[in-house]
Amino acid sequence: MPDFSDPKKEFASTLSHSNARVVRAPKVTANTAKMAPHQSLREQNLTPRLPVPAVNDWVAQRLLKEYGAIFVAQGNVVRPPAIIFTNPTDCITWQSRLNIRRENIGGIYIELQTEAMNALLAAREEAVRKNLRITPRGTWAARRSYRDTEKIWSRRVVPGLAFWRRRGKLSAREAARIQELAPARQVKEILRLEAQGLYFSKNFSKSILYSGTAPGASQHISMLALDINENHQAAVRAILARHGWFQTVISDLPHFTYLGTTQNKLPALGLKKTVKNKRIYWTPA
């Protein structure tokens, strides 16, 4: 795994393991092209050829803002080719090209990109030496399919529509219409309602995007994200950060993202530091 204590080794190749399930994938590194005058640091370091949303595409802009840290991940990981996968086939095809490692951690099998898994295992070893644990939060903690993201989204949307209908904020007809929409159109409608104060998180107090992202837009699809049980422990968060794992979605408490670099280099990649309830989040500036 990358040695983040030595900048010269930061972009070293991942270690090979006899139990790794590896599929050849193109190597992706930081975009080193010269920065155009109108580009931000984030735009400079985005995945090469990533389709950047138009200014008037407010849904894609919002998704990039909330989840875009993954598009500047460093090292030998492969970053997603789009802000959102629009169908299961494209998602499956892309995932099949990745270098993946599968491990049983705490009785739960999880899959991550090989470099991210190596870093996680190294973090776990450090945690053990300090009498701490780092374990996945359920079967959906790491890799997710397009269908998985649809299910999670639906688990927020359906109760939310019923909740706001009971409170007279939505008619039965309108709620039924939104529930029957295709995912892409439904996302736009839900975010439109949230702009009016009708939130769809589990307790209906904040945006749905802080507890379940739009179908096809989850960082878990890239296998560079992991939900962790011990997220409330500052010492665990510090260990994960030393191994390239950071919190990148504000208020999604269990969620960590593998960015493959050290914390002091994140601002140069176009990420800003936000401190909330004593936690540090790194999100697109």
Score class of each variant (00 low, 15 high):
R129H: 11
R185M: 10
E189I: 07
S207G: 09
P26R: 02
H38P: 02
F246K: 03
V157M: 05
D227Y: 00
L193R: 10
G260M: 00
Q95W: 02
L269K: 06
G168E: 09
R101T: 12
A285P: 09
T93A: 11
L63H: 02
R124I: 15
E189T: 09
R129I: 06
K169R: 15
R279E: 07
R177M: 13
V128Q: 12
F4Y: 14
R24V: 14
A238H: 14
W245I: 00
D90W: 01
E189S: 14
D90G: 08
L120V: 05
A73V: 06
A20W: 11
F11A: 12
E189Q: 14
V158G: 05
H255M: 01
A141I: 02
V22F: 13
T89W: 07
W282Y: 08
Y258S: 06
P267D: 07
Y67M: 11
P215Q: 06
A285R: 10
N264M: 10
S251N: 14
S154C: 10
A12N: 13
F71G: 00
N99C: 12
A25M: 08
R165N: 11
A69G: 09
E150D: 06
T114A: 13
Q219K: 09
R143V: 06
L269I: 07
Y67W: 04
V275G: 03
I92S: 12
L224N: 05
S201N: 09
W282S: 02
K130I: 07
A25V: 05
S218D: 03
A268C: 02
V236L: 04
A82G: 03
W153M: 00
V22G: 07
D90H: 01
F204K: 13
I92W: 09
A142Y: 00
D90Y: 07
R156N: 11
K265R: 15
V23T: 14
R147E: 15
K9Q: 13
R185P: 02
N56P: 04
D57S: 08
G244D: 08
G107T: 04
Y199M: 12
T14L: 13
Q74N: 10
T86I: 04
R102Q: 14
L271C: 02
S13Y: 13
F246H: 02
S145H: 01
S16L: 15
A30C: 12
R21H: 14
T93G: 03
N264W: 09
S222V: 07
R173Y: 12
G75Y: 01
L64Y: 04
L98C: 05
V77S: 01
T261S: 10
T139C: 09
P48H: 06
V77Y: 01
A33P: 09
P254C: 08
L240S: 00
G197I: 06
V59L: 12
S145W: 05
L191S: 08
R97G: 11
P51H: 11
V55G: 07
I83C: 01
A176F: 09
W94N: 00
T29L: 14
P26S: 05
N19P: 04
R242W: 05
R167D: 08
I178A: 04
F246A: 03
P37H: 03
T29C: 10
L15R: 12
V249Y: 03
A195T: 13
K27E: 15
L64I: 07
Q196H: 14
R242T: 11
E111L: 08
L132I: 06
T135S: 15
V22K: 12
W282M: 00
